[in-house]
Amino acid sequence: MTAIAAKPASGASLNPVASGIGIVVLIILIGIMYAIGGQIALIALIGIIVGGLLIAFGVHFVPVGGAPAAMGQAPGIATGVAMLAAGAGLAGLFGGAWAWAVQTNPDLLVAVITGGVGGGLMMAITCFFVNFIYIFGMGIPAASGKVKVDPLTGDTQPEFKSQGTEGHGLPFISFVGGVIGGIFGGAGGTLIYLMLLNVYQEVLPKMTVFDKAGAAGVLPIAISLAGIFAVGMFLINAVLAAYNITGTIEGPHDPKFKRFPRALIASAIASGLCGVAALAIVFVPV
């Protein structure tokens, strides 16, 4: 219901003062991190911020219609945007973390891309089944409500929109958007996890709590800490991005997509903040 009534209220406008304050806070946070953790922490924090940006940007691609989509009243996937993105991103994190663990000489780029492809694969299968149910279960072809022509395939949309609805199903542009969103989400989640894991593996054995453990002994602690922090930061970034698009979006062709710059600023600040706290846990043992 909200999706139908909602018009982009504030558009893509940025609040320059608030954004400026936010960026200053971010720079201060990066400075604090360098002061307490040195270079290893600084590199990890930058990786975490990049991961957060990937997640926030990716969420804007995921076509989500919310409750109206379940009635064929609006296009998109019939679930919540934050949690759908989390489902894809965490499936990617699963693949990326595994790829990192099985290689003897793991490569960061390979693991991150593997995570991204994992998220993209999850979204590709899910989006395909959404269309499958619409077409073979309900006899409804896909139609977008926001654009007249699918920008990728050139298919006209309005005449395939049934009466009294905003469109339904996933036109090809939304499918592609979903896959891209999954790729960004999976890559971002994996990047955050690996950045934290590297620092923890490096620093945890030196802590007094783990005096007898050694690198192999602290591995479960490092994996669990990095994993739960990655999940937490993923959820924060996904929810912030969901607030930005006010719940529903059709994909990259939706006018709401143009709001992404302010989500990127928000995500950079939030990821920087959470990253500092998550890294500080190994640098400030009292």
Binding site: G80, A82, G232, F234, I236, Y243, T246, A277
Partner: peptide, 18 residues
């Protein structure tokens, strides 16, 4: 808030765990 009630809980615990 434009999106579901559950997402607020997820945000709460995402920041709380850190």
């Amino acid at each position: 808030i434009g999106t579901g009630v559950p997402s607020a809980g997820m945000m709460s615990f995402g920041s709380g765990v850190i």
